[in-house]
Design a protein around this nucleic acid. Structure first.
Lengths: 93, 93
DNA sequence: AATGTTTGGTTTATATTATAAACCGCTTTA
DNA sequence: TAAAGCGGTTTATAATATAAACCAAACATT
């Protein structure tokens, strides 16, 4: 049985990656709403995805307000796809 | 986004359930080999699946040797199928 | 213009989980 | 009968997820 990438095998991180795979760019507030997570938890998990090289996190401004935007990297896309393939074995799909 | 059943969202427990879903009965030694887990880890995870009502664990003998056999319950089957459905949302399947 | 409130987060503490190491009783073998 | 395997369980530790507490900047309120 294939190993399941532990970075992706986490509900919140997987949810974030899932969103980013289909949207190409999403900000902190949007991700927080969509995943119904707390800001603290989201912040930590984004750091981990970023540290793994799966997403890029960019801090910018919209007017005077800060805005943190996330994008999936090529490496992240690849990892996500491999994770899906690995999981299929487990789910009998 | 649906919640992912935390009992099933664990590599080893999911592997065990996956096997039991397609085999109807498997013993401890077989599960250990198939999942390439340590006996300790497997023992703990079987307990959790059992405590959740997802599998039954039966201790018997074959000759003089003990034999621990596992089967998935109806509740376990249902939970597994729901987990698969929930995951599909995340994986975009 | 000081005072509270909200927004957009980060850091830190805590609870839960996964995992392996140490252990145990029973057999088999030397 | 001593020692080595087999089939596990219990317990200690490391890793993880999660929320609570916190912080700075902007905005509204008196």
């Amino acid at each position: 049985m294939k190993e399941l990438d532990p970075i992706l095998h986490s509900q919140l991180r997987l949810a974030v990656m899932s969103i980013l795979m289909s949207v190409d760019e999403a900000d902190f507030v949007y991700l927080k709403e969509k995943t119904e997570s707390t800001a603290g938890n989201l912040s930590v998990q984004l750091d981990k995805l970023s540290a793994a090289g799966y997403i890029t996190v960019t801090k910018g401004f919209v007017g005077k307000k800060t805005r943190t935007t996330c994008q999936v990297t090529d490496q992240g896309k690849k990892a996500f796809e491999q994770y899906v393939e690995a999981l299929k074995d487990y789910l009998n799909l």
